[in-house]
Simulated assay, not measured.
Amino acid sequence: MGNITEMNSIKEIVERLADIMINPNSAIGFAEGALSVPLDFGYLVGGCLIPILAITVKQNE
């Protein structure tokens, strides 16, 4: 097992993480992040789809 100093630092880290997770600002940030997923997915699909369509159109010319 670790010594007392290591255990105290682990406890401090856990407490800090818990404080961050409980913080109302974190909840707002998580919600905003979740709401932006469809937009991010749209950008991803558009970024992949547009080059594919351009190649297809060029091949059909």
Rank of each mutant, 00 (worst) to 15 (best):
G42V: 10
A31L: 06
N3M: 05
E32A: 04
I50G: 00
I28G: 14
G46Y: 10
L17I: 14
G46M: 08
S9M: 01
V14N: 13
M21A: 13
G33K: 10
L35T: 05
M21V: 10
G46I: 09
D40Y: 05
S26C: 02
E15N: 11
N23M: 04
F30C: 01
V14H: 08
N3K: 03
G2Y: 05
L35G: 02
N60P: 00
N23L: 04
D19V: 04
T56Q: 02
I13N: 09
A18R: 11
G33V: 01
C48T: 14
V37F: 14
N60T: 02
M1E: 04
E61F: 04
A31K: 03
P38F: 06
E15K: 07
S9L: 02
V37L: 15
L49A: 15
I4M: 11
R16T: 03
A31Q: 02
S26Q: 04
K11M: 08
P24M: 12
E12S: 12
R16Y: 11
Q59W: 13
C48F: 15
F41N: 05
G42S: 08
Q59C: 03
Y43D: 10
M7G: 04
P24K: 14
E6Y: 07
Q59D: 12
I52V: 03
N8H: 13
G42A: 10
V45M: 09
I20Q: 03
E6V: 02
S36F: 01
V14T: 12
E12P: 01
A27H: 05
I55S: 13
S36M: 15
A34I: 06
I20Y: 14
K58A: 13
E6G: 14
A31V: 04
I22R: 13
I28T: 13
T56D: 01
E6K: 12
T5I: 10
G42F: 09
